[in-house]
């Protein structure tokens, strides 16, 4: 049995969030503060907490209570980039919904439905973020440098759709950095010493070494999915990379390997960055870019983040 708590001091916001969750996922219990939510956490419980409460001293207690039962915390609301990455880092938060959860009502229920899935299933794929029937293009680089050809194909496809040039550039950056991670980092896992394979030499990719990219766009959203078959990326590594955004004085890593900035750059270029992590099996990273010029409640200072880890 999974329960959902909505934590907010304002009754009107509570009710609106409660409606979004109830209609898209299931019943939600409304709580006025973090202490009440901590007391209400029972079994596998997910709590939707708004950004105003992120710095409250009772937050760590709630996070601990939720995780003890197999649940977790979902932070939502508009937060500045340095603040949000500090919260992600300090509380090991895996889910941040930065779009207005009422104006953009699909993200929160979708997150809950994904969290509620049984462990040990396949990763979900990019289809769920796009309109029904959208054509997906699948590309798989045959060599390390063929990554460039893949990026050119995406940009050509987006240009043909009439997508604004800056969205094309964001899409290319997301695809490039996620592919580079899948090609160069995933085979070696988290050990930075092993990652320093020389990147300016082209080498063929085959079998497990060859990642898969799929992308598609409807009128509202562009989605890029990169999947590798190593499953070596973990949530703490992702959070550590994103934490670099808390401090603009971060310096690129030197050497022949990656600069250590790719995940952070992909995150900033996206509207939403989603990871499905199946340790030892699969890592799937999905970058979403909202294609609308100024959608109400969607353009925010910092992208949403979701890290789903399969523990099966």
């Amino acid at each position: 049995m999974i329960s959902v708590l909505v934590v907010h001091g304002d009754r009107k916001t509570q009710r609106m969030l409660g409606r979004v969750i109830t209609s898209g996922f299931g019943p939600a219990v409304l709580c006025d503060d973090l202490e009440a939510a901590t007391a209400a956490a029972n079994g596998r419980t997910y709590a939707v907490v708004t950004a105003e409460l992120a710095a409250h001293p009772a937050l760590p207690g709630l996070v601990a209570a939720l995780r003890a039962g197999g649940g977790d915390l979902i932070l939502c609301g508009e937060i500045g980039p340095p603040e949000v990455v500090a919260i992600i880092r300090d509380h090991a938060i895996d889910h941040v919904v930065t779009t207005d959860p009422i104006a953009s009502a699909d993200e929160l229920p979708l997150t809950l439905r994904t969290l509620a899935r049984p462990h040990g299933l396949d990763v979900l794929g990019v289809e769920r973020y796009l309109g029904h029937g959208v054509h997906l293009t699948e590309l798989s680089p045959e060599s390390t440098h063929a990554r460039i050809t893949v990026l050119a194909a995406i940009r050509d496809g987006l240009a043909a759709m009439g997508v604004a040039a800056r969205h094309e550039r964001h899409a290319a950056l997301i695809a490039d950095e996620l592919l580079a991670n899948a090609i160069h980092d995933a085979p070696h896992g988290p050990d930075p010493a092993l990652r320093d394979s020389v990147r300016d030499t082209d080498r063929p990719l085959s079998g497990r070494d060859r990642p898969r990219l799929r992308w598609g766009a409807d009128g509202r959203m562009l989605a890029i999915e990169v999947t590798d078959r190593f499953g070596s990326l973990d949530a703490s590594t992702i959070r550590a990379h994103l934490a670099k955004l808390a401090d603009r004085s971060t310096r690129p890593r030197q050497g022949n390997g990656g600069a250590g900035l790719g995940l952070a750059m992909a995150y900033l270029a996206a509207t939403q960055l989603v990871f499905h992590l199946c340790p030892g099996r699969v890592t799937q990273a999905i970058g979403l870019v909202d294609l609308r010029a100024r959608p109400d409640g969607v353009r925010t200072l910092v992208p949403s983040l979701h890290i789903f880890t399969d523990r099966g």
Binding site: R169, A172, L173, D176, E177, A180, R199, R251, P252, R253, Q254, G258, A259, G260, L261, G262, M265
Partner: peptide, 12 residues
Amino acid sequence: TYINSLGVRDWV
């Protein structure tokens, strides 16, 4: 038209 993380490192 484009700069990736390796390009940023070289640019810096």
